[in-house]
Design a binder for these strands. Structure first.
Length: 832
RNA sequence: GCGAGAGUGGCGGAAGCGGCAGACGCGCCGGACUUAGGAUCCGGUGCCCGAAAGGGCGUGGGGGUUCGACUCCCCCCUCUCGCACCA
């Protein structure tokens, strides 16, 4: 082809152009969301706000490349976009880092925020900086406290003594959601159980709605919705009351299989069940039961994680089965969990594997009451429990009924007979929000010796977090030792009282921040209902899947509570969700200890913002993980360099001409058609977040533009049209380069966003010619160019006329010809 | 164990619908230009047979539906993620 082109064009240097445009954007106020209705539709584009634990890392580089591409695309499409940023700034890591370095958590946090802020600017993200806030600012957490009080008033915040997950390293309790595989989510230390008085949010009251409304969510929620559904763990069944023969106590159990009630041969309590001490006393088994309890308490979490244990101690009392009056022995068994159901179970060895194992261990009867369709089971010889379907036997009025289809009838019967009732059980526990740590939002409650628990009056908020606190962890809140903080007057009686010293889980802070962005400077309320109505719900939420059952569940819960309290008029905060994958290095998550850490700042210094962004977007679908070791930015870097040259040369070759002018035919017409087709494709890829495909099409357009310039065969208008489209569509991907080429090279005075996303002419975008594939018996034998509007008959004739096809038809009889005009003809010779 | 998702060249990944498998890029091979190239440009690149023309095979494995299967159905294997004694 052509030889080397003398490089008249100055080289592409991101470091020269990027800071320039960042300043221009700021000066022009290009990314400010407009409050007034200016006729444009609104679009709330939200990225999960960062935690300031250092500088931004490669994970942020990916997440915000995606979020910014979406925001900029919507902007160009003419939306009034709200794209805010802030910091999730309270939390344990700040405190731990501060302890290690001897810096105050506040100082450490604000320093990191400033660093991240600078990095975001250097990355050129299109944030509306005027809306920034940090959750550790008193102007923010004042309203977190206010929300707590609303929850409190509504009976949704309460304090109780409960066994809690305690992390011995971090010296604080954790929510269930923060315990991963029995260990602290943050530091990996196995948690232990500790009975403590703690603050909870009554999320279980919303369990049903939180499950139900998962079906109403928009795009991208599928994975997170499934995880939430599992986490909430809704099971339908029945509650059945057993009576303790010796004491007359009524003990309810929850079961999903009331149809197996006739197969009950024992009864078991969780070790922590409140009735256990009394029953052991009555049964004369106090000693062995206490021994078991002590051991369970000691071994706690570790033993439970060790695997299924079928140990247990007989209580020496009997429970009466309400369906048949039979008396069965009672046990205390650690495999029965206090935190699920009622803390007591009916034991049906024949039809529950755990009960089966327990019965074997303790020599209890295995009584079959559901017979499988194909054989006859005998309890004495079974190897495992039968949990499949079958026919009910030895089941009184239900003999012969089909199980599990009979469950609704059995439940109805139980209710009629007054022996039980339909019931729903959830795996979800109430959200434990107390933390015995310093760097968090103080809980606005005062404990008064005479009035008890008293909420701080709203006008006294915020309860300020004092700076001069010894925050080394000692197992109780550091605030407890700050007398100036603790001692206060009771808001009700004025007497001497003490402040609550626990702080709130940071997930409380992040459960409403998206509302605050709509009116971040409002100092009279948490958020302006008008502004919320204008912007909410969030149209597009981007963030990591690791928050599927933490932040995303809590934020949904908060929104529903605020809906019930009349503060918002929608029940779901985030319409569409995009969970981007992780950034790996050599197949593993980056970490300093693993020695595979790639610093964002280094990559930025090496390649510039546009190359890093485009590399992230080109690596694959946003949901997939990106392995930085395998996605070398060099390909993208070369491409942007080619864009630079091609646009420069196209601009020079079309100087003074309009894109709309005549394209001529031949190369000019072909280029113009390609430009329109690529516009159509890229638009579609953007709508579906397929940035990798969008970029691949833009690469093709770049190549063809350069070829047309080199060939000198396309007239100026066609060159200009292709160059302008390319540069406009580049804006969400490599915004700095796009600005430079648009304004400085193509000579437009204003940013590409003012021109907007390019439209395409469907007539030009349509393919004129397509490849007709001619098959014989499903195998490709020839490819023929045909007009895109060729008829079935024409296509058929063309295919049959092909010598290559004819060769394979020799000696065979054509049975049928399948025609899918204009792309495919399949000549079938085999019998069908 | 339960739930969800995924297996395509040496690598990242394409192929809404059943219709040209491997777009685009990396890497690699060859060439051009060069004092030089880890810059740039051009060409090639799934595997096998063949000098070529051409042919055969190919989307984790096995079956099936269909004129036609990466795509739909059944069974199996592997991997990733979430939950994990949930009654």
């Amino acid at each position: 082809m052509t030889g080397p082109v003398p490089t008249r064009v100055r080289p592409y240097d991101p470091h020269e152009i990027e800071p320039k445009w960042q300043e221009v954007w700021e000066r022009e106020g290009l990314f400010l969301a407009v409050e007034e209705d200016d006729g444009r539709p609104r679009f709330y584009c939200l990225d999960m706000f960062p935690y300031p634990s250092g500088d931004l890392h490669m994970g942020h580089a990916e997440a915000f490349a995606i979020g910014d591409a979406i925001a900029r695309f919507r902007w160009m499409q003419g939306y009034n976009v709200l794209h805010p940023i802030g910091w999730d700034a309270f939390g344990l890591p700040a405190e731990n880092a501060a302890i290690q370095r001897g810096v105050h958590p506040k100082e450490w946090t604000y320093r990191n925020i400033e660093r991240q802020r600078q990095s975001f600017r250097r990355y050129g993200v299109s944030f509306d900086w005027t809306r920034q806030f940090n959750t550790c600012d008193p102007e923010y957490y004042r309203w977190t406290q206010w929300l707590f009080l609303q929850f409190y008033k509504a009976g949704l915040a309460y304090r109780k003594l409960a066994p809690a997950n305690w992390c011995p390293t971090d010296q604080t309790v954790l929510a269930n959601e923060q315990v991963v595989g029995g260990a602290c989510e943050r530091c990996g230390t196995p948690v232990v159980r500790k009975d403590l008085v703690q603050w909870f949010f009554r999320i279980t009251a919303y369990a049903d709605r939180l499950v139900r409304d998962l079906d109403r969510l928009g795009r991208g929620w599928e994975r997170a919705a499934t995880m939430q559904r599992n986490w909430i763990g809704r099971s339908e069944g029945a509650e059945v009351r057993f009576r303790i023969e010796e004491t007359g106590d009524e003990v309810p159990v929850f079961t999903t299989r009331p149809d197996t009630l006739w197969g009950v041969t024992f009864f078991a309590f969780a070790p922590e069940h409140p009735l256990v001490p009394k029953l052991a006393e009555v049964g004369g088994t106090a000693e062995p039961v206490r021994e078991l309890l002590d051991r369970v308490q000691r071994e706690a979490a570790a033993a439970r994680e060790a695997g299924p244990s079928r140990e247990g101690v007989a209580l020496g009392v009997s429970a009466v089965n309400p369906v048949n009056g039979e008396r069965v022995p009672c046990f205390v068994a650690p495999y029965v969990l206090m935190e699920y159901g009622t803390g007591a179970i009916m034991g049906v060895p024949a039809h529950d594997q755990r009960d089966f194992e327990f019965a074997r261990e303790h020599g209890l009867e295995v009584r079959v009451v559901i017979q499988p369709p194909d054989r006859e089971l005998d309890g004495a010889s079974m190897g495992e429990a039968w949990t499949g379907e079958g026919r009910m036997v030895r089941s009184g009025p239900f003999d012969g009924a089909r199980s599990p289809q009979s469950i609704p009838e059995v439940t109805a019967w139980l209710e009629r007979e007054g022996k039980g009732a339909p019931a729903v059980s959830y795996r979800l526990r109430d959200w434990l929000i107390s933390r015995q740590r310093y760097w968090g939002c103080p809980i606005p409650i005062v404990h008064c010796p005479s009035c008890g628990e008293v909420p701080v009056p709203e006008e006294d908020l915020p309860v300020l977090l004092p700076d001069d606190v010894d925050f080394s962890p000692r197992g109780e809140s550091p605030l407890a030792k700050h007398e100036g903080f603790v001692r206060t007057a009771c808001p009700r009686c004025g007497g001497e009282a003490r402040r609550e010293t626990d702080t709130m889980d940071t997930f409380v802070d992040s459960s409403w921040y998206f509302l605050r962005y709509t009116s971040p400077r409002d100092d009279r309320r948490a958020f302006d209902p008008e502004a919320v109505r204008r912007w909410m719900p969030v149209d597009q939420y981007t963030g990591g899947i690791e928050h599927a059952i933490l932040h995303l569940l809590y934020a949904r819960f908060f929104t529903k509570v605020l809906y019930d309290l009349g503060y918002v008029d929608f029940e779901e905060p985030f319409t569409n969700l995009l969970n981007q994958g992780m950034v790996l290095m050599g197949g593993a998550a980056m970490s300093k200890s693993r020695g595979n850490l790639v610093e964002f700042a280094d990559e930025l210094a090496k390649y510039g913002a546009d190359v890093v962004r485009a590399t992230m977007l080109f690596a694959g679908p946003p949901e997939d993980d990106v392995d930085w070791a395998t996605v070398s930015p060099s390909g993208v870097q070369k491409w942007l360099g080619r864009v630079w040259r091609a646009v420069h040369e196209a601009a020079a070759a079309s100087a003074g001409q309009e894109a709309a002018g005549p394209s001529g035919d031949g190369a000019g017409e072909g280029l113009r058609r390609l430009a329109h087709r690529v516009t159509r494709e890229v638009t579609d890829h953007f709508e579906r977040f397929r940035f990798n495909l969008a970029i691949s099409r833009l690469m093709v357009l770049t190549g063809e533009l350069q070829r047309a310039v080199d060939g000198g065969s396309a007239p100026g208008p066609a060159l200009r049209d292709a160059a302008e489209r390319l540069v406009l569509m580049l804006w969400p991907i490599a915004p700095h380069l796009s600005e430079e080429l648009w304004r400085e090279v193509l000579g437009h005075p204003e940013s590409p966003v003012r021109t907007g996303w390019p439209a395409f002419d469907p007539r030009l975008a349509r393919e004129e010619e397509v490849v007709l594939v001619a098959q014989v018996d499903g195998r490709v034998r020839d490819r023929i160019m045909v007009r895109a509007d060729a008829t079935e008959e024409e296509v058929r004739e063309l295919a049959l006329a092909s010598p290559k096809v004819a060769r394979f038809l020799e000696g065979r009889r054509v049975q049928r010809v399948v025609v899918r005009a204009p792309k495919l003809v399949n000549v079938v010779t085999r019998g069908s």
